[in-house]
């Protein structure tokens, strides 16, 4: 049982829910950028939510199935075809041996997720199948998938073909997107006026946006509180003595273009960070296309925890409906 990759798309990788526990060695958690969509795709095909599937960016892959099985596509809004016939997304689909999965042009969002009954069963590396290409870890031989690859899959269980998730429960960012953040880390390095300006400005997703981090531009350059730079930090006011980075932390090298670190984050470095995106909104970043307008909204810790609970509740509701 396997998937034959005819065309990999632009950048398609095997992902699951990641490999926690090695960030202290510079190996990031990785896993699906939009974990909500990955989890739901797995639920639809009766997998454990930790099962490995595919994450594709902007363009879908073309895949041939070597056995009768079930699949589900979630995440970005993109036409899904089986043997050229359009199929619904966020729905459990039956596919037969020899059939081909392909995709049309992306309509909204940035990343689509493909789950297959039984999951992809490439070898685990440090407890996860997630692809971390920089470290040549996990995935298919440590890299993204390529034409001609054959990805092994496991044995699926019972799948309720046709089961679907209502559009209202498909959690996607708004446009303009609002990314909620908790102020902190090195926020105090900014002048009060500059901090307010940062939150007031409209930013746009830059083309340099990937699994490591999303860059934004369009807002005003930041102003720093004057200080003599501490020993070992480096001379730029945006420099600090190299420290750990939080997932979702917002660094602004040179004070010009914010970068939000994502699932394949570098674990540390010498740039100040002004806070971090709340955990509930991390999925949204994975669905932002370049040039999407974005505003950063500062919220309290209580609001961050409520948003996190709300996301959990939505997943619980979907779980209950699909079980």
């Amino acid at each position: 049982m396997a998937l034959n990759i005819i065309n990999p798309g632009l950048s398609t990788s095997i992902q699951d829910l990641g490999r926690p526990g090695y960030f202290h060695l510079g190996i990031p958690i990785g896993g699906a950028m939009d974990r909500f969509s990955m989890r739901v795709a797995n639920m639809l095909v009766g997998n454990s939510e930790e099962a490995a599937g595919l994450e594709a960016v902007f363009m879908g892959p073309e895949i041939e199935f070597t056995n009768d099985t079930a699949i589900a596509i979630t995440g970005a809004d993109i036409p899904v075809m089986i043997d050229g016939v359009e199929q619904p997304t966020w729905t459990a689909l039956a596919v037969s041996k020899g059939q081909k999965l392909s995709f049309g042009f992306l309509k909204a969002g940035a990343r689509l997720y493909i789950a297959i009954a039984g999951g992809i069963t490439t070898p685990e590396a440090l407890g996860s199948r997630s692809t971390y290409p920089i470290g040549a870890l996990g995935g298919f031989e440590g890299r993204n998938i390529a034409a001609g690859d054959t990805l092994p899959t496991g044995t699926g269980g019972n799948v309720n073909i046709g089961a679907t998730v209502a559009p209202a429960m498909r959690r996607m960012p708004s446009n303009p997107a609002i990314l909620r953040m908790v102020k902190g880390l090195y926020w105090h390095r900014l002048t009060e006026a500059s901090g307010a300006q940062f939150l007031n400005d409209e930013w746009k997703v830059a083309p340099e946006a990937d699994r490591m981090g999303y860059r934004f531009r369009g807002g005003k350059a930041l102003e720093f509180v004057d200080r003599e730079q501490p020993f070992g930090a480096g001379s730029d006011p945006s420099n600090i003595v190299d420290g750990c980075y939080s997932y979702g932390s917002i660094q602004v090298p040179g004070g010009t273009e914010p970068i939000v670190l994502h699932r394949d984050a570098v674990s540390g470095g010498g740039y100040f960070t002004l806070g971090a995106i709340i955990s509930a909104d991390m999925d949204f970043i994975g669905q932002l296309q370049p040039h999407t307008p974005v505003k950063f909204e500062a919220v309290s810790m209580d609001a961050a925890l409520s948003a996190r609970k709300e996301r959990h509740k939505l997943l619980d509701t979907i779980r209950a409906e699909l079980s």
């Binding site: 908790v182 902190g184 955990s279 810790m301 961050a304 925890l305």
Partner: peptide, 9 residues
């Protein structure tokens, strides 16, 4: 300080 809702720095 906090780094979002999942980190203490």
């Amino acid at each position: 300080t906090f780094g979002g809702d999942e980190h203490i720095y």
